[in-house]
Amino acid sequence: MSGISRDEVAHLAHLARLELTTEELDHFAPQLDAILGHVSSVAQVAADDVPPTAHPVPVANVVREDVAGACLTADEALSGAPAVEQQRFKVPQILGDEQ
């Protein structure tokens, strides 16, 4: 496989809206070439009879049923709050009036 050139790295950086210095282009070109080489190796090993998968083991969604249970009353939930206003937690304002 021929090496990826600095111009190709610069073009990819431009497409990704990245500003790279000449040193970074020189640094990343061999790394991208190595990555493409590894991808090529994997593509050669992959057989047509093996379906593409995201996980080697079948994954099943194992969640419990959503069952309503006992919960706190508003007074119980607010009992430990440092400040309460109109049955709500009162916190310092962090946003101004501007929108």
Rank of each mutant, 00 (worst) to 15 (best):
V45H: 02
L20M: 13
D48I: 01
L36R: 13
P52F: 13
P58S: 10
Q86W: 05
D26G: 11
H11R: 14
V67N: 13
P51R: 11
R64M: 08
I4C: 01
L32K: 09
V42F: 10
A13K: 03
D49M: 01
D48F: 04
S5N: 03
A83G: 01
H11M: 02
E24R: 08
L12A: 10
E98A: 12
A46D: 08
Q86K: 13
Q44H: 09
A60K: 10
A81L: 07
L32G: 01
G3V: 08
Q99P: 00
A13I: 04
L25R: 11
V57Y: 08
D33M: 08
Q31G: 00
H55P: 00
P92V: 05
M1F: 06
I4Q: 04
P58F: 10
T22H: 06
E65I: 09
Q93C: 03
L36C: 13
V9H: 05
V91W: 08
R6E: 10
P30D: 05
V39Y: 15
E65A: 14
S79K: 00
R6G: 04
C71G: 15
D33C: 07
Q86M: 03
N61I: 07
P30V: 06
Q31W: 08
R6T: 02
G80C: 06
S79Y: 02
T73K: 02
V50M: 03
G69W: 08
L18N: 01
A29L: 05
Q99C: 09
D49F: 10
V39I: 15
P92H: 08
R88H: 06
G37E: 08
G80N: 12
V63F: 13
T53P: 00
D26E: 14
L18Y: 03
L32I: 07
H55L: 02
V91L: 12
D48P: 01
L12Q: 09
R17A: 01
D49K: 04
Q44F: 04
P58K: 10
A47M: 09
D97L: 11
D26M: 07
Q44D: 11
K90V: 00
L20N: 09
E19M: 07
T53L: 14
Q99I: 06
Q86N: 14
E85I: 02
V67Y: 10
D97R: 11
E19H: 05
A29F: 06
R17T: 01
A46W: 13
